[in-house]
């Protein structure tokens, strides 16, 4: 009886090992980042290094929240400020961080981001997302959004509104310094790297081409969040 149980456990273990081997034989995330640009993503790339300074752009949101963006000192800067604690959570992006013209299916996207200021310390996040927004329309898009230092979510439409589902915990990735993020999407699966270390993968179920955008999120009750972005590049298959 004991032998029979051990045999079943062994068979299950062996089956799991075979499955794992099959998956890892297809893609090894750890080596993928090293070989991706030379062996898979060979189409002409896109690079925005924000080397040209721009004027400051300011606008008011909800009367009392100031949204600012500009390129300076080789970075794209995105800021939300509410002198009094913000009465609501505000999410913004800007034209310098929208890459709608870069529509890709399989890609290697790379960028740096840094949470330069947050008042209070946990007052908001920097984010970057990819989605099929330009094909599906705003509010109907599917995609993945990452908040370094917090979490990653997948999102998609459900009964007329976007529903977010947590897919990874990124709280250990300190964003008070430059964090380099790499996203490689291959055969519908996206592999996410922080500072060149593989962190998680996710099958997003998106069949359309996707584009990118980045920005800031000021949380309710907070005063200020500033994020700097740099060296956004995309190489396609």
């Amino acid at each position: 009886m004991i032998l029979k149980r051990m045999l079943i456990i062994f068979i299950l273990f062996a089956a799991e090992m075979v499955l794992c081997t099959v998956v890892s034989a297809d893609v090894n995330p750890d080596t993928l980042l090293r070989t991706a640009d030379s062996e898979i993503f060979i189409k002409a790339g896109f690079l925005q290094d924000y080397s040209k300074d721009t004027d400051y752009f300011n606008e008011f949101i909800n009367g009392d929240i100031i949204h600012q963006f500009y390129n300076a000192r080789g970075k794209s800067v995105e800021v939300l400020t509410s002198l009094r604690p913000s009465p609501l959570t505000v999410i913004t992006n800007n034209k310098n961080l929208q890459f709608d013209a870069q529509r890709v299916r399989g890609f290697h996207a790379s960028f740096k981001m840094r949470r330069v200021e947050s008042i209070p310390r946990d007052g908001g996040y920097c984010w970057l997302r990819y989605s099929d927004k330009f094909q599906s329309g705003i509010g109907k898009e599917r995609g993945v959004i990452i908040y370094p230092g917090f979490k990653a979510y997948s999102f998609g439409p459900d009964n007329g509104e976007l529903v977010y589902t947590e897919i990874a915990d990124l709280s250990e990735f300190n964003t008070g310094r430059d964090v380099r993020v790499d996203i490689i999407r291959l055969d519908g699966v996206s592999y996410f790297y922080f500072d060149k270390f593989f962190v998680f993968q996710y099958e997003d179920g998106i069949s359309a081409l996707v584009s990118f955008e980045g920005g800031t999120e000021l949380l309710e009750g907070a005063n200020r969040i500033r994020c700097d972005f740099d060296d956004f590049s995309i190489v396609a298959q």
């Binding site: 400051y56 300011n58 100031i66 500009y70 002198l83 009094r84 209070p120 005063n223 200020r224």
Partner: peptide
């Protein structure tokens, strides 16, 4: 009163708040 951090952020960024 506004918090010290907020006042400092405004003071240090007058050029980009009022460009």
């Amino acid at each position: 009163d506004l918090s010290e951090d907020v006042v400092r952020a405004v003071t240090e960024n007058l050029d980009n708040f009022f460009p």
